[in-house]
């Protein structure tokens, strides 16, 4: 669950959740976001090192959640997409902004730092990256 949790499970994800720090295999150059500690192709023969992603990319599929799971009820409707990052790997993320109903596959997106989730009025507040439609970037 993302709620009723203590600090450690969010603390250890700060780099990837706040700054898009993923990893890269120095042997085969595969890139991983979310980060992996082992390259699935090279396994123990490879070595992974940290790599920061730009967060820019393109929507390859999307939906609008209208019935939420526990803890997310107050956010509906919200948009979620699978984004192909420019560095060459995919990530799931929320799409925010006032034009989510006009979303389409192929649209460019850029990352924005946002509040992600509040665990009631006394629990942890989590922050992280969401995405918004990037109208000024038509490099696709």
């Amino acid at each position: 669950m993302t709620y009723k949790s203590s600090v450690p499970m969010f603390w250890r994800l700060q780099g990837s959740k706040y700054r898009l720090v993923g990893t890269r295999c120095t042997k085969c150059n595969s890139v991983f976001f979310p980060p992996r500690s082992l390259c699935p192709k090279c396994r123990r023969k490879g070595t992974v090192e940290e790599m920061t992603f730009s967060g820019k990319g393109e929507i390859i599929s999307y939906t609008i959640i209208r019935t939420a799971p526990e803890g997310f009820e107050k956010y509906v409707p919200y948009a979620v997409a699978i984004i192909k990052l420019d560095e060459g790997t995919n990530i799931s993320g929320q799409i925010v902004g006032n034009n989510i109903e006009g979303m389409a596959i192929g649209m460019r997106v850029r990352p924005v730092f946002r509040r992600m989730f509040e665990d009631g009025d006394r629990g942890l507040i989590q922050y992280g990256i969401k995405w918004e439609i990037d109208k000024g970037d038509s490099t696709s």
Binding site: T2, S61, Y62, I65, Y78, S92, I105, F117
Partner: peptide, 22 residues
């Protein structure tokens, strides 16, 4: 994926909606 799918408010309908759209 608890850290990267559940954490952003995805549901199972949502996951299959992503597959449907594709």
């Amino acid at each position: 994926d608890q850290e990267w799918e559940s954490a952003i408010g995805l549901t199972f309908v949502g996951l299959y909606a992503l597959l449907t759209r594709a």
